[in-house]
Nucleic acid binder design. Sequence first.
DNA 1: ACTCAAACTCTACATATGTTGCTAATGACG
DNA 2: CGTCATTAGCAACATATGTAGAGTTTGAGT
Lengths: 103, 103
Amino acid sequence: MNRAPNISRQTLGVLAALLAQPQAWRYGYDLSKETGLKSGTLYPLLMRLSDQGYLEAEWRQPLQPGRPARHAYRLTAAGVALARQRAEAAIQTAPLQTSTVRP
Amino acid sequence: MNRAPNISRQTLGVLAALLAQPQAWRYGYDLSKETGLKSGTLYPLLMRLSDQGYLEAEWRQPLQPGRPARHAYRLTAAGVALARQRAEAAIQTAPLQTSTVRP
DNA sequence: ACTCAAACTCTACATATGTTGCTAATGACG
DNA sequence: CGTCATTAGCAACATATGTAGAGTTTGAGT
């Protein structure tokens, strides 16, 4: 049977980056800079999320010839829901420390 | 004053590669493979030859999205003349050895 | 020959996306 | 808990073009 989608640390990082501005289109290259993920991890991940309906993807023409067209990604409604849910879960697992810091 | 165009070993290699099939369009990437020149040497060189009227250049759309458009180059009539002249000069400077090999 | 400035080369970096092939992690099932 | 299959991650490679800056080579004039 098909497995439930597992949300790894890496995937969570990308979802968090996208959730920061849920309606903005983001490029893979920028996301790789922001999350620190290498292309061999990031691009397959984006394609998977896209296939699963959590992201929508669009090609944008390059501004200058000689540069590749850019693939823009954005969270779908399902993607926003997933990201929120998992982000909350992550927060409950590792809550912010407000009073346990010791001098 | 403006100087006469110097034809370096590197430039000569590119001209020779282009002269092999004078009417064919060639890509920078392929020429770099063929001549062994790195991009930082080759592309400025191609642009110079192009500016000087020895090459004509054209952009070609990529076959797949996500890949950059390709810059195609071809010798002009002046370029063919230059390449022939310099190729002959090079042959006279360093002729083929037929009988001087010693065991 | 010598010197100076322009022209040229080269290493490294930057832009962007993607695939390959091996390894590691995960979940289902007994 | 152990095993198996699926999934995910990662380093390296591949595609293509180009720029920046430092150093080298060259030609012109003296």
